[in-house]
């Protein structure tokens, strides 16, 4: 085996060998069985590495993580992404209307509070929730950083919702309730943004805006899941 060439076999496999050296190596390989064997073995090592499977830990690490970050690791059922795409949603219009009514109340009340409540020095009691804690240190940052992603997610979900409506998979009563709820939430978002513009340092207003945006996302996600489920 020619050690000089053997040392270059990995670069040859990876395609990083300069043209002249590659040509010389190929000429050498044509007459060197040992190097061809080594080359084949190295290729198999690379293929084996690429085929390695990812395996989850033997024990569920989420409870310990949840404890460290201060969120509940309760026994609620966790819905996987694939499951969320395929499961049938069983909300009735009445259930949806009830949820929307709550959202209406929360949205209006929150916006009212947001506009009435004086700025809270240091963020008060809302500054302990992981990333949301950033709101106390860079209050305006979160909204700015996530705005484009949020807008994209909302646009995508609204598009799915529109398709559900156009295809008739959402009945008119449901669409009416959804539309009213979204109008109210949008109004709350506008008011919260307005209040935030007047008091950009308010951790409370940032939190309120984030919560309102989250409610809109959640409503849209539920509604878009509802649309394809009603076939």
């Amino acid at each position: 085996m020619n050690d000089t060439w053997t040392e270059r076999l990995s670069e040859y496999i990876d395609g990083t060998l300069p043209d002249a050296e590659r040509a010389a190596l190929e000429a050498h390989l044509a007459g060197c069985t040992a190097c061809r064997t080594t080359l084949d073995e190295l290729r198999r090592v690379v293929a084996r590495a690429r085929a390695l499977d990812d395996r989850p830990p033997a024990a569920d690490l989420w409870p310990a993580i949840a404890e460290q970050i201060g969120v509940s690791s309760g026994a609620h059922h966790v819905v996987s992404l694939a499951e969320r795409r395929t499961r049938r949603v069983t909300f009735t219009v009445l259930q949806l209307a009830a949820a929307a009514a709550v959202l209406l109340l929360l949205g209006s009340g929150g916006a009212y509070l947001a506009l009435r409540r004086p700025p809270v020095e240091g963020g008060g009691a809302i500054a302990q929730r992981g990333p949301a804690a950033d709101l106390t240190t860079s209050p305006v940052g979160w909204v700015q950083k996530t705005s484009s992603r949020y807008d994209a997610a909302v646009a995508e979900l609204q598009s799915a919702l529109e398709q559900g409506r156009a295809s008739g998979r959402l009945d008119s009563a449901t669409v009416r309730v959804l539309t009213q709820s979204l109008v109210t939430i949008d109004s709350a978002i506008v008011q919260a943004r307005r209040a935030l513009a007047a008091d950009p340092g308010s951790a409370y207003l940032n939190q309120h805006l984030a919560d309102t945006m989250r409610r809109k996302l959640e409503l849209l996600r539920r509604a878009s899941a509802l649309a394809p489920a009603r076939t």
Binding site: I69, S72, S73, V79, S80, G130, P131, A132, W142, M213
Partner: peptide, 10 residues
């Protein structure tokens, strides 16, 4: 990012 633990669990 807004503090939703369930979303982070997913």
């Amino acid at each position: 990012a807004s503090g939703d633990g369930r979303a982070f669990e997913r």
